[in-house]
Design a binder for these strands. Structure first.
Length: 579
RNA sequence: CGGGGCGUAGCUCAGCUUGGCUAGAGCGCCUGGUUUGGGACCAGGAGGCCGAAGGUUCGAAUCCUUUCGCCCCGACCA
């Protein structure tokens, strides 16, 4: 490809809207342009890379037994009603009506579509298992698109769905996908760690996320210093010391104090001159079946709703509205405490009983209790105790007890064991060998294709621009001619070299622009093409051209004769490094 | 959804506080010339409904109201 014939509007200045490296560079290197918030055009450079990522994903999915198909973007809203997901999606679902007044949506994901398709056409255990995937654009009306291509309202996803007759069989495919994902990211040159993940209200027994560790990531990964434990903070657990029971014989005296307008942990602890860890945070939740659930955690900790849900054995849970709280406590919001209230259920974090001189709301507006001793002043049954909070830095690892540390990360892939949530709702059943109808057991496996691009740039760049892994670089080689005129020896040689490389099957960007050398070099660095070949007068006089790797800047002279072979070998070597 | 910031040339921004000539700079673009190994130089030129609507005023990029859009922090996130 000739630079002058393509559409590569590089920009010299840092765009005002971008703050993170990948976003800045994707704009500067002419990969993308924003249309509206969270919606981007892919320019030739960006699209070429995107397609290379897609191709790697496709090859590895095929190798792992995936079968590619393509489902519609337009999806009837009713299909999501059948699995109660219209509400679950909430505002992120793009909804509209067609001319016949039928409700349609732009597909945010395709569990329902694939499941109903499979339900219609697969009826026997003999046709299972099957693993179907597509690479397609998804639409989610995110409340806050951000970070360039990392969080958008329209994005490309590889989504795969597998169907099985047994959990063991699902396990096998899950493992295959897990391995395939590692190969995909390796080939893309993106360093990932697989972590235990929260499967969320989507349901399902196990789930792993593939994370790229970087400070600009939106997710928090918790990992252990000493063993290989790693999990999303939503999922991470901690080792709990035995014997956390309170000291019932405590001398501390329970006392009610006046705390006007002090309803937050910070206000209360400042007003009462105590530390947040002394405060017992009392949160009131309501389940979908109108049960009132109270959760107690230490003042400096956060309740983890997924853990609470699991402990309470409920599928949905949300913070109670003010009315419910007032009804329970008889006080304004902000003065709830465990003493004297009668919720349907109460759950207490393991760290609470260890508090010896606690502070809680008094269930009376503008009043708190001090000198609270858990177990003495309110009852703690063993079945109320559990791990219901988010882990914090320094908590003991659940496997080995060493300290947990936190890192930020970008989620680029996610594998789930779904179970039968969708198959039972949409009647995806098969006849087993005994002639009985059974719900199919499902798994699903997603990869954020655009995110791979952003994550690759985020982890591979310097102050001059992108440093592409060769497997997903828009071009493998760039040839720069430094001739004075298009007709001189230097230009002709550059042109011939570019043409020969292209014939040899190499992706070449030939910078044939009538620009000064500096401009071409700067753009070459910015674009991040892994191999740069420069044809200049001085070296050509000795029959040499210059070869430089973007990643290390080392320059070497090679003979023009045989240059194609030399470069081809180098391309092969760089590609092989990513296998 | 809460908090903050910003909309002026293709890009980055000044001008707005304290209303007043024809609305500016750098980069980019066009013409001509000189240059040619890390974003050249000289000369000339094109390019703006100052996000939109309404209002105040003799007069609005500037003041007021409304509205649309974009970015950041937080909340949320199958």
């Amino acid at each position: 490809m000739r630079f002058s014939q393509s559409f590569i509007p590089t920009v010299r200045e840092v765009p005002a809207d971008a703050t993170i490296a990948s976003h800045i560079l994707m704009i500067r290197a002419a990969l993308i342009r924003q249309l509206v918030a969270g919606v981007y055009s892919y320019l030739p450079m960006g699209y070429k890379s995107l397609r290379k990522v897609e191709q790697i994903v496709r090859e590895e999915m095929d190798k792992a037994g995936g079968i590619e198909l393509h489902m519609p973007v337009l999806v009837p809203v009713d299909l999501f009603r059948k699995t109660n997901r219209v509400e679950a999606f909430g505002n992120i679902l793009f909804k509209f009506k067609d001319q016949h007044n039928a409700e349609l949506s732009l597909g945010p994901t395709h569990e329902e579509i694939i499941t109903s398709l499979v339900a219609d056409h697969i009826n026997s255990y003999k046709q299972l298992p099957i693993n179907l995937y597509q690479i397609q654009t998804k639409f989610r009306d995110e409340e806050r698109p951000k970070s360039g291509v990392l969080r958008t309202r329209e994005f490309v996803m590889k989504d795969a769905y597998s169907f099985h007759t047994s959990l063991e069989d699902l396990d096998k495919t899950y493992q295959k996908m897990y391995q395939a994902y590692h190969r995909i990211f390796k080939r893309c040159g993106v360093p990932v760690v697989a972590v235990e993940a929260e499967s969320g209200p989507i349901g399902g027994s196990a789930s792993h996320e593939f994370m790229v560790l970087t400070d600009i990531g939106e997710d928090q990964v918790v990992s252990c210093d000493h063993c290989d434990y790693a999990a999303n903070v939503e999922r991470a657990t901690r080792k709990v010391a035995d014997g956390t029971a309170g000291r019932l014989e405590s001398e501390v005296v329970l006392k009610e104090v006046h705390t006007p307008h002090k309803s937050t942990i910070e206000d209360v602890s400042e007003f009462l001159k105590c530390k947040p860890p002394q405060v017992i945070k009392t949160l009131v939740y309501r389940t979908s079946d109108e049960q009132v659930v109270v959760a107690l955690v230490r003042g400096d900790h956060e309740v983890n709703e997924a853990k609470l849900r699991r402990m309470g054995g409920v599928s949905s849970l949300e913070l109670a509205d003010d009315g419910t709280i007032t009804k329970l406590t008889g006080a304004a919001v902000g003065f709830a405490g465990p003493i004297g209230i009668k919720p349907d259920k109460m759950f207490i974090d393991f760290d609470v009983p260890a508090i010896t001189d606690g502070v809680t709301g008094a269930n009376k507006t503008d009043h708190h209790f001090v000198g609270v001793v858990p177990g003495r002043d309110f009852t703690i049954e063993p079945e109320m105790l559990g791990d219901i909070r988010n882990v914090v830095e320094g908590d003991p690892c659940p496997h080995c007890g060493a300290k947990l540390k936190f890192q930020r990360a970008i989620e680029v892939g996610h594998v789930f064991k779904l179970g039968t949530k969708y198959s039972s709702a949409l009647h995806a059943q098969y006849l087993d060998a005994g002639g009985k109808n059974q719900d199919m057991i499902m798994g699903c496996y997603g990869i954020g294709v655009n995110r791979i691009l952003a994550a690759a740039i985020e982890t591979h760049h310097d102050e001059n621009g992108i440093i592409w892994p060769i497997s997903i670089a828009p071009y493998q080689v760039t040839v720069i001619g430094l001739g004075r005129t298009p007709e001189d020896e230097v230009s002709k040689t550059a042109e011939r070299l570019a043409a020969e490389l292209e014939s040899a099957g190499i992706d070449v960007l030939f910078d044939d622009r009538d620009q000064r050398p500096g401009v071409k070099f700067k753009d070459a660095d910015l674009l991040g093409v892994p191999i740069r070949v420069t044809v200049g007068q001085k070296t050509l006089a000795e029959g040499k051209v210059e070869l430089k790797l973007r990643r290390d800047g080392e320059m070497q002279l090679i003979d023009v004769d045989g240059a194609v072979e030399t470069i081809k070998t180098l391309v092969g070597k760089l590609m092989a490094e990513l296998e």
